[in-house]
Design a protein around this nucleic acid. Structure first.
Lengths: 265, 265
DNA sequence: TAGTGGTCTAGACCACAGG
DNA sequence: CTGTGGTCTAGACCACTAC
């Protein structure tokens, strides 16, 4: 199929001429990148839901009228970004936070001995959950305007009886309309899985800023440490598709029995 | 060239039969993985030095008697691991820490405003540099025996006049024979670049464990903070080829004007 | 103009999963 | 047995760099 030399050139964004006539940016992108964007749009539009099987490489190649190898390269990049998961013999699936193999995909806190799975699931306790108008320092990172409605959640995670993480979570009121403390408390599984299934919001990547701070009175009581105890302060902004921020999270981690693990390359 | 159907099968590790006769592990690896290992061995053996050009994909394909596409896939993975750098129109180069584009490839500490380049180079001050016999807690992470010779270095990094990082570095005595405080003090550029050029040791990846701790008297004085001030404790183990640990580094970071930045996906 | 990496195609075969 | 992703090949052409 597709005997034309440049199958998509007139269907998709052609991008500047070869000679870069006068364009500021070349604005050229290879075919497989354009295919990647198309698949991304289908993911974003919910054509295939988290956990579901997407069409085979051959089907997608036919749909976009390119060769299977070109689709393959597009999917390779999506898989590298953890947006889809390939399973040989089965197909390619939309990634999800609901796989119980890795319960907290973005949590880098590890017990000092053993791995994340060796200590069992965290005990979760919701301290507070309320709706409020976003102050400036909350609105900004969420790309909202000051005063917009946001949902604030405070909770404690304990491992083997020891409270270890105290975190505040802020969510934009719009996409998370209908969220309640009840729903959060009764849900088994990662918070991000609930976001997917109940609100159609998929967290795709995140950035964290880490600092060392001293425990204040409130934090100290909840984490059962002395006031002034050094704690790891972890501010996370999580993004959906299109780099849209969808969650702000400020966590305090005890690092007496756990540590934040990071791999560099 | 290479009209045989399985060019490398009898030259390289054939790996178990298709049926997985009785092997515990399949021990099968695709051709491009075997090529990758061969290129890796050449890198490790120093056939091409850091910063140098490696043979073209066509040359390597001829050398290993495989197609260009297979070599390409091997190099793709090496590039993804930051072991080599591809430059279109020029060739593929061995990665190095000496490129002044990124002065500290493994340092994740960023100024709160602006990027890493906006504050200029760090001012370095060597506090101490001595040879000693490794205690158990130093020998272990470096895969040495207790009592083996190691080199210990203590230094302070300051940004715009503010001392921000205090770190102790331990290096195995063998590979770093001849290292002196003088050499370290006079060298311009990243420490890892010196390791490459003077000792032929290339740091390829690293792992970090991060904690929050309180400044003790000695640290407080060197970093000019009050005793008890919360500091980020960053323990890094850096590895050469073959996952061989070659450096242990324990750093204390001030996080009042800087933060540790991490990207999750 | 020559050589390099980058893209795209088409077709073959292998490994794996499931009916 | 079929269909999926995974590997490998061969050849074409494009984009960039340097001489």
């Amino acid at each position: 199929m597709a005997t034309t030399p440049f199958p998509l050139t007139d269907t998709l964004a052609t991008a500047g001429e070869t000679g870069t006539v006068a364009g500021v940016t070349p604005a050229f992108s290879p075919l497989y990148q354009q295919i990647k964007v198309l698949i991304l749009q289908s993911l974003q539009a919910g054509e295939w839901k988290p956990g579901e099987l997407i069409p085979s490489e051959m089907d997608l190649a036919a749909r976009f009228r390119v060769s299977q190898g070109t689709v393959r390269k597009a999917i390779d990049e999506l898989a590298a970004e953890n947006l889809v998961v390939r399973r040989q013999g089965k197909g390619t699936f939309v990634a999800t936070h609901a796989e119980h193999h890795v319960q907290y995909r973005f949590l880098r806190l590890m017990p000092d001995s053993g791995d994340a799975n060796s200590e069992g699931p965290a005990e979760r306790q919701i301290i507070d959950c309320k709706r409020l108008r976003a102050p400036a320092d909350i609105a900004r990172p969420l790309a909202l305007r000051t005063g917009d409605a946001v949902l604030q959640l405070r909770r404690v995670l304990a491992f083997q009886g020891t409270p270890t993480i105290l975190e505040d979570v802020w969510l934009p009121g719009g996409p998370f309309k209908g969220m309640t403390a009840e729903r959060l408390a009764t849900y088994r599984g990662p918070m991000y899985a609930l976001f997917e299934t109940e609100f159609g919001v998929r967290m795709v990547r995140a950035g964290e800023k880490i600092r060392a701070v001293a425990a204040d009175a409130a934090s100290a009581e909840l984490l059962k440490v002395p006031v002034g105890e050094p704690l790891l302060s972890v501010e996370r902004i999580a993004y959906t598709y299109n780099d849209l921020p969808m969650e702000l999270r400020r966590g305090l981690y005890r690092t007496d029995t756990h540590h934040y693990k990071n791999e560099l390359s």
